[in-house]
Amino acid sequence: MIRLIEKTPCEALLPVTCGALTLREIVGDRVTSVAPLKGQGAKLATALKKLGLGWPAPNTAIASATAAILWTGRDQAFLIGADPEGLDGLAALTDQSDGWARMRLEGPGAADVLARLVPLDLRGFAPGQAARSQLGHMMAILTAPEKGSFDIMVFRSMAETAVHEIHHAMKAVSARAAL
């Protein structure tokens, strides 16, 4: 009988450290795509308040002590770390947990690393902001859990490529800082 072994998207790839920069995997949180059903936006926002959240405006993320919801596109958000209980009938809900690789880049120069890969100026990116953009040639979702660090989400199938690209940029930024 075949025995399947569960692996995380970045298993054996992370963590990596270059100088003061670290890229590590974020593991274990449930990720649910939430898209309001027609005419249910206000009720959905009220239901999210029971989770200590709300409906995020474009390019924003809302976090509580145990969960977050981040804007991922028009009429779409990702609920992270919370059970979507109470949202049935208000939104189309899709479990995305196994489809995404989640990483955190932290340390001085983290924005400089991403400046080599993302066509956005992230130097002023602050907690509560979210962006859906390119990371190299991949689509990514970026948030700032705290000033100077970034949570990065890419499709699970692109995890190895994302780690390679980010690690390469980390090496370049660390080498420049060492001069």
Rank of each mutant, 00 (worst) to 15 (best):
D75I: 07
P58S: 07
M103D: 06
I80L: 15
G52W: 10
A45L: 04
L44F: 06
W55V: 06
R74S: 14
A65G: 09
Q96H: 11
A67M: 14
W55D: 06
L87P: 01
E106I: 01
D88P: 00
D95L: 07
L51N: 02
T46L: 13
Q40E: 12
E85H: 10
I69G: 05
G39Q: 09
E85C: 06
V113N: 05
T94K: 10
Q76H: 09
L48H: 11
L105F: 05
M103K: 01
G52S: 13
I80F: 12
G54M: 09
R74G: 06
A77V: 03
I69Q: 03
S97R: 11
T46W: 00
L51H: 15
K43L: 10
G39N: 08
L79F: 13
G99V: 00
K38F: 08
A42P: 02
P108D: 11
L114V: 03
P84R: 13
D98E: 14
R102D: 03
R102Y: 00
F78A: 13
A92I: 11
A57R: 10
T66L: 13
W100H: 10
G54Q: 09
R116S: 10
L105I: 00
R104V: 12
L114S: 04
A110W: 02
D88K: 09
G81A: 12
Q76N: 14
R116T: 04
L105H: 03
G86F: 08
L70A: 08
K38W: 00
G107M: 04
G99T: 08
T72P: 00
G39C: 06
A92T: 13
P108W: 00
A111P: 04
I69L: 08
D83V: 08
S64P: 14
T72L: 04
P36R: 07
L53P: 04
D75P: 05
I62S: 04
L79P: 07
S64G: 15
P108I: 02
D112N: 14
L117F: 10
A42D: 14
T46I: 08
L44H: 04
A45R: 05
R104Y: 00
A91S: 07
E106A: 12
A82N: 10
K43G: 15
G109D: 03
I80T: 15
A101Q: 04
K38N: 08
R116D: 08
K38R: 12
L79W: 12
A91V: 05
A92P: 00
G89L: 06
L79N: 10
I62V: 11
G73E: 13
A63F: 07
Q96A: 15
A68M: 14
A57F: 05
A91D: 05
E106H: 11
R116F: 03
A45P: 02
W100I: 11
G54A: 15
I80Y: 11
T72K: 01
A63N: 14
P36A: 06
L114H: 05
L90A: 04
I62G: 02
I62N: 06
N59M: 11
A110Q: 02
I62K: 04
R116L: 15
G39T: 09
A47I: 01
P56Q: 07
A57D: 11
W100R: 13
F78P: 01
K43N: 13
L105P: 03
N59I: 00
K43V: 00
G109V: 01
T66E: 15
W55M: 08
D112S: 10
